[in-house]
Each structure stands twice: as structure tokens, then as C-alpha cells.
Design a protein around this nucleic acid. Structure first.
Lengths: 199, 199
DNA sequence: ACACCTATCTATAAACG
DNA sequence: TCGTTTATAGATAGGTG
């Protein structure tokens, strides 16, 4: 399908087959989910790799109709007719999937995409949210940037005056309101940084 | 996918949804068969239309592992959900779970939370991203806001042509650069708005 | 609903790291 | 094994009959 067209028959090269399986499986699941979403269809998809590994997907948008089975028990795919509706617990997969979709949309909107689907009012929220987020990030960056400078300043002042508690002027490098950048203990902050660097 | 990109959400237009269901179902089955053939996988695919009609496919290339039943035959919904064990956890579920976590973190960072985990450099990216996103959102909002005004303006200019007229000042409601908000045909834009309002 | 068209959008085979 | 990239093959939305 791409650099070269391939015939639809078993791929003999094991490595290539493995790669194709991974890619196409992913694509197939995506298509299944899209169909389910777009057309309000219920879909169950079971894929067993040649080595016996199971990958599955089931949409259960309204009622749970499909049940899954473990690979190693004797398989028995069963469908129910009109199962108890509302009470059905949605599959974990479905729930997760929904969550992913929601978060994806959220992120896309924060990126400023998909905005044509929004009304003027609906644009207000993301805008405010972005402003808040930006403000926080900028502030944090500022603080992080000023810390070593302030530390140096303190050290120097301490040396020069013998010692004293000093009043330090803090400058903001951003165009955001400088809401009092740093007032807590520096060693504490350093402790946090140290801990973080171990990730 | 083609003449126009569509969002992955339920297609409201019934006719269009039906067409999409038919086309995409066909495509999905084809992909399933290709995967099965190319990679020697066993696949079962069940698709229930919104109206309850069943379409299914099952490959049994190597061994018969999947049993199918007709929707209208006797029911036995088997609750055999083995809590996702090793094999399954490694699969789609696991990946989705990871995705959820990643997106959650991403969102939190865009919200300006969890920033203590970032170095100064790592703060740069979200900041720029937020600025871009904010700029896009603001721009879109501006455009949306200006559209009716511009339309009115044109109308009025058209009316006043041949008569006395006063100049109309257009104000931007945002503090972003007004990058020439609207220059295309107003009726077209109105068409878009109308279409959108039906959501 | 179906078959065909075609401009676009998506999936993906190969190649590379 | 994985992630990316890139060029190309394939899928499909919207339109028409």
C-alpha cells in the first residue's frame, strides 16, 4: 500500500509480518472505533496473533452485547439478544477509550484546533483557561530563572556586608503580572529539583 | 477522508450515516480479512447496526477458535470476562491506559499544574504551545465576532453607495493583532455559521 | 440503497535510527 | 523491538445517476 504494493497473501518474512501485524492491527482497531462512533454501531473485534496473543475491542455504547473470552479457555464468543440495558457495566476498554477521546479533544482545543465547531461562547472557556495556564507556566519559568540569580545575590550581599537579611528586588522577565515570585526557602526548592532529576 | 474531513462523532444526518455505515463497514471487513491473510491472524468481527442488524466475519485460518451465533438465535450471554490478565493487559487495554495517563499529564501541564517536574527548558515548550493555542483561539473568536459586523458593514456600504455615508470604525474585542479578520464573501461565512448552529 | 466518480484524507511499506 | 519519516496505495465524503 505504500512504497510498494503488496499482494494480499501471507507475508513470509517473519519480521515484516510482525511489523505489518502491529501496524494494521492498530489501523483496524481505529477503523472499528470510528465506525462505532460515527454510525452508532456496536462492534466487537477479536484478533488473535499467529502466536496466540489476543487483542480485542468491544464498543458497548448502550448495551453490552459482546462478551470476551480468554485465549486459553475454549472460546465461545457469544452475543446476547437484548440484554439488560442501562445497568450494563461498560467494558473497561470502552471506558478508557472514551476517556482518551475526550482528552484528545480537550488537548486539540487547547491547541487551538477544532475550533470551527465552537460557538463564540464556547471559545470563551478555552481562552480563559489558556490564559490561566500560560500565566502559571510563565510565572513558574520566571521563578525558576530567578532562583539562581537570587541565590547568588544573597550570597554576595552576605559576603559584602558580613551578613544581613536583605531586601531583594525581583524582576519579572515576562509580560505577565509578577505576583511575588519567590519567598520561600531556597534549599527546599533545591530539594525538589534534586528529587526530580532522578526521573 | 475525502472531499472533506469529518470529525469522529456520531453523524447526525441519518442518510449520511447510513451511507457511511455501509461504506465503512465494507472497508472494515476488507481490512480485517487482509490482516488475517497477511499475518496469519485469527479474527472475529461483529458489527451491529444501530437498528440491530448483524454483520459478522470470522477467519478460521488455522484453527477454529471462534464460534459465532446468530443474533436471533438463542441467547447465552456469557460473562467470561477474565479480569484482564497478562496477555490482555499487554494489549490494547494497556496501551490505552498509558495513553490516558499521558494525555492527563499533558492537560495538567497545559493547565499550568505539575510544573515543578519541569526544568527551565521543559517549561519553554508548553509556554510556546500555550501562546500558539491562545493566539489561535483568540483569533478564531475575533473572526467569529467580527463576521456579523463586517457583513452589516458591507450591506450598509452597499446601501449608502450614491448617498452620504459615514465611516464605520471596527473594534477588536481582543488584545491580539486583528490579522485582517474577514475578507471573503459574507454569505459564504453565514452559510457556515448556519450549518454549525444545527449541532 | 447502490454503483460510480474523484478530490482528499488516511493508512501503511520501506527505510532509517 | 519500537519510533519516525516519507512516498505511495487505499479508503472515503460528497456528488450524481
Amino acid at each position: 500500500m505504500t512504497r510498494r504494493k503488496i499482494a494480499i497473501k501471507k507475508i513470509e518474512n517473519v519480521a515484516a509480518r510482525q511489523v505489518a501485524f502491529s501496524k494494521r492491527r492498530k489501523g483496524l482497531f481505529k477503523k472499528a472505533m470510528e465506525l462505532s462512533t460515527l454510525c452508532d454501531a456496536e462492534i466487537a473485534l477479536l484478533v488473535f496473533s499467529a502466536s496466540g496473543k489476543l487483542f480485542d475491542y468491544a464498543s458497548t455504547s448502550t448495551r453490552q452485547v459482546i462478551e470476551r473470552r480468554n485465549l486459553y479457555s475454549d472460546v465461545n464468543l457469544v452475543k446476547s439478544y437484548q440484554p439488560p440495558q442501562e445497568l450494563q457495566v461498560e467494558g473497561e476498554y470502552f471506558k478508557l477509550n472514551k476517556e482518551v477521546k475526550e482528552k484528545t479533544l480537550e488537548i486539540r482545543q487547547l491547541n487551538g484546533e477544532e475550533l470551527q465547531e465552537c460557538t463564540l461562547e464556547e471559545l470563551q472557556k478555552p481562552e480563559e483557561r489558556l490564559q490561566r495556564g500560560l500565566s502559571r507556566v510563565s510565572k513558574t519559568k520566571d521563578e525558576r530563572f530567578m532562583k539562581p540569580i537570587n541565590a547568588l545575590k544573597r550570597k554576595r550581599l552576605a559576603c559584602e556586608r558580613g551578613q544581613s537579611s536583605d531586601s531583594i528586588v525581583i524582576c519579572s522577565s515576562s509580560d505577565n503580572p509578577p505576583q511575588d515570585a519567590d519567598s520561600s526557602d531556597a534549599s527546599l526548592r533545591l530539594g525538589q529539583l534534586t528529587r526530580l532529576s532522578s526521573y
